Deep mutational scan, measured.
Amino acid sequence: DAPDEFRDPLMDTLMTDPVRLPSGTIMDRSIILRHLLNSPTDPFNRQTLTESMLEPVPELKEQIQAWMR
């Protein structure tokens, strides 16, 4: 099983494109984008959230890719 820090906190699946929300939570980009289609909010604190506020986490993405090899 993947380490917890590699798993999306909402869907508990392996992240492939991790992004940091303004709240500091790291999620998979595809999952948070799907959530934003229904509700333009951070799913953990209900603060306003837009796609432009998502910050890529390239170092975590590299760690996940290395773990998958």
Rank of each mutant, 00 (worst) to 15 (best):
D1A: 13
D1T: 14
D1R: 14
A2Y: 15
A2V: 15
A2I: 15
A2K: 05
P3E: 03
P3I: 05
D4V: 15
D4S: 15
D4K: 15
D4E: 14
E5K: 13
E5P: 09
E5G: 10
E5V: 11
F6W: 09
F6C: 06
F6E: 01
F6R: 03
F6D: 02
R7S: 04
R7V: 07
R7H: 07
R7K: 13
R7E: 02
D8P: 03
D8Q: 02
D8A: 03
D8N: 03
P9Q: 06
P9L: 05
P9D: 05
P9K: 07
L10G: 02
L10F: 09
M11V: 09
M11H: 09
M11K: 09
M11A: 13
M11F: 11
D12P: 03
D12K: 15
D12M: 14
D12R: 15
D12F: 15
T13C: 15
T13G: 06
T13P: 02
T13K: 07
L14V: 13
L14C: 08
L14K: 02
L14P: 06
M15I: 08
M15Y: 03
M15H: 01
M15A: 00
T16K: 12
T16W: 12
T16M: 14
T16Q: 12
D17G: 02
D17E: 08
D17N: 08
P18Q: 03
P18S: 00
P18A: 01
P18F: 03
V19M: 10
V19H: 04
V19Q: 03
V19W: 06
R20M: 09
R20V: 06
L21D: 01
L21V: 02
L21W: 03
L21C: 05
P22M: 03
P22G: 02
P22F: 04
S23H: 05
S23I: 02
S23Q: 03
S23K: 02
G24W: 04
G24I: 02
G24H: 04
T25A: 13
T25M: 15
T25W: 15
I26K: 01
I26C: 07
I26T: 05
I26L: 04
I26P: 00
M27S: 02
M27H: 04
M27R: 02
D28F: 11
D28N: 05
D28S: 04
D28R: 01
D28G: 03
D28A: 03
R29W: 08
R29D: 01
R29I: 06
R29C: 07
S30I: 12
S30N: 11
S30M: 13
I31M: 07
I31V: 15
I31A: 09
I31H: 08
I31F: 05
I31D: 01
I32T: 00
I32C: 06
I32A: 05
I32P: 01
I32W: 03
L33P: 00
L33Q: 08
L33G: 04
R34H: 10
R34E: 10
R34C: 13
R34D: 08
R34F: 11
R34Q: 13
H35I: 09
L36P: 00
L36W: 03
L36G: 00
L36R: 00
L36E: 00
L36D: 01
L37T: 11
L37Q: 14
N38C: 13
N38K: 14
N38V: 14
N38E: 13
S39V: 08
S39C: 10
S39I: 07
P40N: 13
P40K: 14
P40V: 07
T41Y: 13
T41G: 05
T41E: 08
D42N: 06
D42I: 03
D42M: 02
P43L: 03
P43F: 03
P43K: 00
F44K: 02
F44W: 12
F44L: 05
F44I: 06
F44E: 01
N45L: 07
N45F: 07
N45W: 05
N45S: 14
N45K: 06
R46S: 14
R46G: 15
R46I: 06
R46N: 15
R46T: 09
R46C: 15
R46V: 06
R46H: 15
Q47L: 10
Q47R: 11
Q47A: 12
Q47D: 12
Q47K: 11
T48A: 14
T48Y: 15
L49Q: 00
L49D: 01
T50C: 09
T50A: 09
T50I: 10
E51K: 11
S52I: 09
S52F: 11
S52W: 12
S52C: 10
S52L: 10
M53F: 04
M53L: 08
M53W: 06
M53E: 10
M53I: 05
L54M: 05
L54S: 00
L54I: 07
E55D: 09
P56Y: 08
P56D: 14
P56Q: 08
P56E: 12
V57P: 02
V57A: 08
P58Q: 10
P58W: 09
E59Q: 11
E59K: 11
L60K: 01
L60H: 01
L60Q: 01
L60W: 03
L60P: 00
L60T: 01
K61C: 08
K61A: 10
K61P: 02
K61Q: 11
E62G: 09
E62H: 11
E62T: 10
E62C: 12
E62D: 11
E62S: 12
Q63E: 10
Q63I: 11
Q63F: 08
Q63N: 08
Q63H: 08
Q63K: 15
I64K: 00
I64R: 00
I64S: 00
Q65Y: 13
Q65K: 11
Q65H: 13
Q65V: 12
A66R: 14
A66M: 15
W67K: 03
W67Q: 03
W67L: 05
W67F: 09
M68K: 08
M68S: 08
M68T: 08
M68A: 10
R69C: 13
R69Y: 12
R69I: 12
R69A: 14
R69P: 07
